[in-house]
Design a protein around this nucleic acid. Structure first.
Length: 470
RNA sequence: GGCCCGUUCGUCUAGUGGUUAGGACUCAUGGUUUUCAUCCAUGCAACAGGGGUUCGAUCCCCCUACGGGCUGCCA
């Protein structure tokens, strides 16, 4: 299994979704683990639905995830000449034939079979027509498709995940490899391209299991070695339905916007349908490359659970250094923290990363430190109106003003003073002050926040708060 | 309808012919913490159903149910 060549082959009819990302990830992990190549092929033969902007989106998403591909991107549409010539070749070798059945004919046959509860099979009417007969039909202006001559027998393959899968060839029709307009069909093109790209392992979603025998027949008819197949179970939404636009968030980009790092997403995705054979769950991408193994890939489809993603993301936040986190934040928002020194940003981040689940949590709380003015909220008004909370704020300012120093020790001392003065516990003093300096009812330790904020800004905030809540 | 695939706590999963069926997330409770979060502890919670095979089946076989895929001149 050395130097395998694998590919990820999305069709640019939509953005990169979670399921596609997982498929890409497993391909990539396998390639990187075995010193192989991970190729990217854009299956853009559906001209109606394919869009360039989707190609860009897919590339950007893979790029952001860090799933870097080798070599040039292959665009399926550019292989058209090759596809055409292989079709010719198959007709010549007698492995494929021109079929003059029309769509309407087939449709009515299908209907009839269904009505009579019979199994529909594509009739092999034109399978053994001579060249003469074909020419005659063509001269009559009849159009034709090209069908593969499916031989008798069984088609068997050993899937790396599902084990042996066996299909009786008679359950497969002589399927179309070229439409009446001459364009090649999916099951044919995939096989030809995979041959062309020297793909050794086809790793893809299990919705392709049923297509695999057809593709194998194409390999056989061309006398080419069949690659090794590995099918991956589907990823489902919380309603256990196949992931689709109807589900909350399926676009990789959305998770980026929500503040998840690519590392977290990859980590979570790896756990969907694979297990590391240990109780560990937090992995770096390097870990995953080492550990990944098809032996531990699940056959059962998996439900995407954002809660667990959030937990993994939170674990990662704690593990990451402040520097790394700053880098990640600025990767998605280069405005963030621009007007502050890195050292200050690091102090801010180190204060809040412990309690954050993702990057957005951090940027949200960091606002308290990065901007002079903050928002206060009406929802805190009833609480601030209680007892002599406003009085406490005023007393705090006055007590602090006459002090020279500004450090944790001194702030604690002032807190003690206020507690004594008002004959209340620490909690009673802390709450209004927290809201006054941050606008929030939660956050890092209040002494730390004040120290980092500095004396002037702390006083400024409390003054603003008094004005707002009075 | 035919063919193929699947089914262990709500979710992700481990597991073996004899286990108190294990872990993680979620949830609940308690503790730590100046708030929130973290962290720690405890708890709730699963072998789809029915037949076999067997001294014994979650595990092996068959059937049923349920879910999914394919069955296109879509990819």
């Amino acid at each position: 299994m050395k130097n395998p060549v694998v590919r990820f082959a999305p069709s640019p009819t939509g953005y990169l979704h979670i399921g596609g990302a997982r498929t890409a990830l497993f391909n990539w992990l396998f390639a990187r683990q075995n010193n192989g190549k991970f190729l990217l092929r854009i299956e853009d033969t559906d001209i109606e639905r394919s869009k360039d902007e989707y190609v860009d989106q897919i590339k950007n998403a893979l790029d952001w995830l860090g799933l870097d591909w080798n070599d040039e991107i292959v665009y399926q549409s550019q292989n058209n000449l090759k596809h055409q010539s292989v079709i010719e070749q198959l007709i010549k070798s007698g492995n494929a034939y021109k079929c003059f059945l029309t769509k309407t004919e087939l449709d009515s046959l299908r209907d009839k079979a269904e009505k009579n509860k019979k199994i529909f099979r594509v009739p092999r009417t034109y399978r053994d027509f001579t060249e003469e007969q074909q020419k005659e039909l063509i001269s009559q202006g009849k159009s034709f498709t090209v069908r593969l001559k499916v031989p008798d027998g069984v088609t068997i393959f050993d899937d790396l995940v599902y084990g042996q899968i066996k299909v009786n060839n008679k359950d497969l029709d002589d399927f179309i490899i070229a439409r009446s307009d001459g364009s090649p069909t999916y099951n044919f093109v995939v096989a030809v391209d995979d041959i062309e790209m020297k793909i050794s392992h086809v790793i893809r979603g299990d919705d392709h299991i049923a297509n695999t025998p057809k593709q194998i027949l194409v390999y056989n008819s061309l006398n080419k070695n069949v690659p090794i197949f590995a099918h991956l179970p589907m990823i489902l939404g919380s309603d256990k339905k196949r992931l689709s636009k109807r589900h909350a968030a399926t676009n990789v980009q959305e998770y980026k916007d929500k503040g998840f790092t690519s590392d977290s997403i990859l980590n979570y995705l790896s756990l969907l349908g694979w297990n590391p054979d240990s109780n560990e769950e937090i992995f770096s991408t390097e870990d995953l490359i080492k550990l990944f193994d098809f032996k531990q890939v699940q056959k059962k489809s998996a439900v995407f659970d954002e809660k667990k993603l959030l937990w993994i993301s939170g674990q990662k936040m704690k593990e990451m250094t402040s520097k790394e986190i700053i880098k990640e934040i600025q990767l998605i928002n280069n405005e963030w923290g621009k007007e502050h020194k890195n050292k200050f940003l690091e102090e801010v981040v180190s204060l809040i990363k412990e309690r954050s689940k993702n990057l957005n949590d951090i940027t949200e709380i960091s606002r308290v430190f990065l901007h002079k003015e903050i928002d206060f909220f009406n929802e805190h008004k009833p609480m601030m109106a209680e007892q002599n909370n406003i009085q406490m704020l005023e007393d705090f300012i006055n007590a602090v003003k006459i002090e020279d120093k500004w450090d944790k020790k001194m702030i604690e001392k002032v807190f003690d003073q206020i507690m004594n003065q008002h004959e209340v516990g620490l909690g009673k003093v802390m709450k209004p002050l927290r809201i006054a300096i941050s606008g929030l009812s939660y956050g890092p330790g209040i002494f730390d926040m004040m120290v980092l904020l500095g004396k002037d800004l702390t006083i400024h905030r409390i003054t603003s708060a008094i004005n707002f809540y009075k």
